[in-house]
Design a protein around this nucleic acid. Structure first.
Lengths: 348, 348
DNA sequence: TTGTAAGCGTTATCAC
DNA sequence: GTGATAACGCTTACAA
């Protein structure tokens, strides 16, 4: 005996009213007489009725679901972002499906191109690897609401919560320079692919060096396939064999920096005395690392909240003009560049 | 002019066949003549038709969606779990919606009780805080496929990917004892609520101490509201004021251990010389911590894979008898208990 | 204010 | 093997 959930019709029958009235009550329609509402409410209670969201969706076209597409959910930056996105979305009545591209260009294309037309989500929050041109090509003529996260380039077609990657990188490097470092390496460039984020951060890095009259050494610019701890470790190992050895390393993410610090220690050197290290993101892990990690803090809750609000607005009204919102960033100097200090507990 | 995606009917009209035939082709039905199939395929191509999954769901009752319910997605253990769950689910054609209970008992109840009946998911993967009794009470008579993650208690009603928490805790403490530590503290107990995991780990902790003839000191058993770095830090600060001071700390999660290590350093002590520290989980962060964190490794990919396969089997056939699968665990001794070693790079 | 009925885009049950 | 057609459970003109 299969269990059948109660339907609108069941409720209507039991309450001796039409489905229309039940629907009105359920969707909070105003013009329902109190006694009707009472009868319906009671029948709903008795039958333990819950509206079927799928049927509702088929009718209204709204699923109440957002897709969040990130490279890897277990990268702290993205898991912290996901947390905030899910919470913000919940406040607005949305739930969030998480998809991972796994750094796979093709999968990224598929998620954007293939599935955007399937009416499973009301909108997509997309943290892309690809550059603008590819993106336009991908999303193409689809009208699935889309909000971009983290890129800087912008052509006005998409809502966009941006980070000023060039400036953020510039700030990090300038901090190192202000501490008297002169041989500043960069970890996390991506020479092979046209990913936007590393390109922008590289630009900021080089600009800061040049403005300070420092040399940009190709051997001090190390790519990292993935922005992972292991990637940072490997890159840093290579870096430490160069001559002259760098006295500071600017990593394009905190995770890279964590790996880099470990490599410095394994090489028998000290952070920051021998090599200062700074990252970008300000993930929680960095506060507790030893030494605690200097970084450029990105306002993840802000980014998440804005993204959800933008997509909600766009879903509400597709004509909403696209907007670029630039999230602020802030240099956070901790032990990995300043050294130990008793006055300022490291993990704050 | 609103853009209307092509429907099955549009394709049928264009190909001059019935919707039935188109549906057959789309769903890969066997008995379709080659020329028919060809005609249909071409029409699909021309109209850029994609089946509407919502309509399909309404008909079939299958959404192809799983819900993953965890306390907090940005806790590394859960984000690593989510990553594996999403990947495993994708292989089987499912997508994953992530929900957070945020340590909120009420929200947990709601997600399980309220929404399970809404036909938005085919099944729920649930990493619960609550104990068995409450759970039974919650899920009650619902027939939404459910797989439990991480608990040990079992009464045969639910599929269940378990961890032997008692044994895992026992192993961790025994490791500390084997290193000659005698004043071993525990961080992460939960005296107020009846959460299963901390209760089990406390049991294993105390059993190991007793078997070794060591004293169980109440003042060396410190609760932690959240299994966070900050929680571990705070608990450890309290711990270090006790007399006698512990010479080892068993933390109920790696995150707690990371926080605890930081507190030890801030107190001017060394790990493991003054205080050895061990956790449970084996998150990636622990490999790169300094010193690298000894831990009890839980096989997260295994847990995720089994969970997804179990729920898929149950969705396929609701009569599938419930099964308890116990994931193996393994002690991983690193620097935080063994001390530094040149031979064994810490981050392996 | 409430009832009736027509879809939303599929799949599945009949016939042929 | 293929064609009509009735659901799936809901929302919403259109009537009453």
């Amino acid at each position: 005996m299969a269990f059948m959930p109660a339907t609108l019709r069941d409720v209507a029958d039991r309450a001796q009213v039409s489905v229309r009235t039940v629907s009105n009550v359920v969707s909070g329609y105003q013009h329902v007489s109190p006694q009707m509402r009472q009868r319906v409410l009671q029948a709903i209670e008795e039958l333990d009725y819950r509206p079927n969201p799928v049927a509702r969706t088929l009718r209204t076209g709204r699923t109440g679901m957002l897709a969040l597409v990130v490279p890897e959910i277990d990268v702290p930056y993205f898991s912290e972002l996901a947390r905030e996105v899910i919470d913000s979305a919940a406040e607005l009545g949305y739930r969030v499906m998480v998809d991972q591209t796994g750094h796979d260009h093709e999968r990224e294309r598929q998620l954007l191109l293939g599935e955007n037309r399937t009416m499973l989500f009301d909108g997509i929050l997309f943290s892309p690897l690809v550059t603008k041109a590819e993106l336009l090509d991908m999303h193409g003529s689809s009208r699935m609401p889309l909000v971009l996260l983290g890129e800087h380039e912008f052509d006005g077609r998409y809502d966009h919560i941006a980070i000023d990657n060039v400036q953020a990188a510039h700030d990090a490097v300038t901090h190192l320079i202000s501490l008297g470092r002169t041989r500043i390496a960069a970890v996390g460039t991506q020479p092979l692919e046209g990913y936007a984020t590393p390109l922008q951060r590289t630009a900021g890095y080089e600009a800061a060096l040049r403005e300070a009259g420092l040399q940009v050494r190709p051997e001090h610019t190390i790519p990292a396939a993935h922005y992972s701890r292991t990637g940072g470790y490997t890159a840093c190992v290579a870096l430490l064999t160069t001559s002259p050895r760098p006295d500071a390393i600017f990593c394009f993410s905190d995770l890279l920096a964590i790996g880099a610090m470990r490599a410095v220690f394994d090489a028998g050197l000290r952070v920051p005395d021998d090599v200062a290290v700074i990252g970008i993101d300000d993930i929680d892990e960095g506060r507790f690392a030893r030494p605690s990690l200097s970084t450029v803090s990105l306002d993840i809750p802000f980014i998440a909240r804005e993204a959800v609000h933008r997509i909600a607005a766009r879903i509400e009204n597709p004509q909403t003009p696209a907007e670029e919102i630039v999230a602020t960033h802030q240099l956070v100097a901790r032990e990995s560049t300043l050294g130990m200090s008793d006055e300022h507990p490291a993990h704050r």
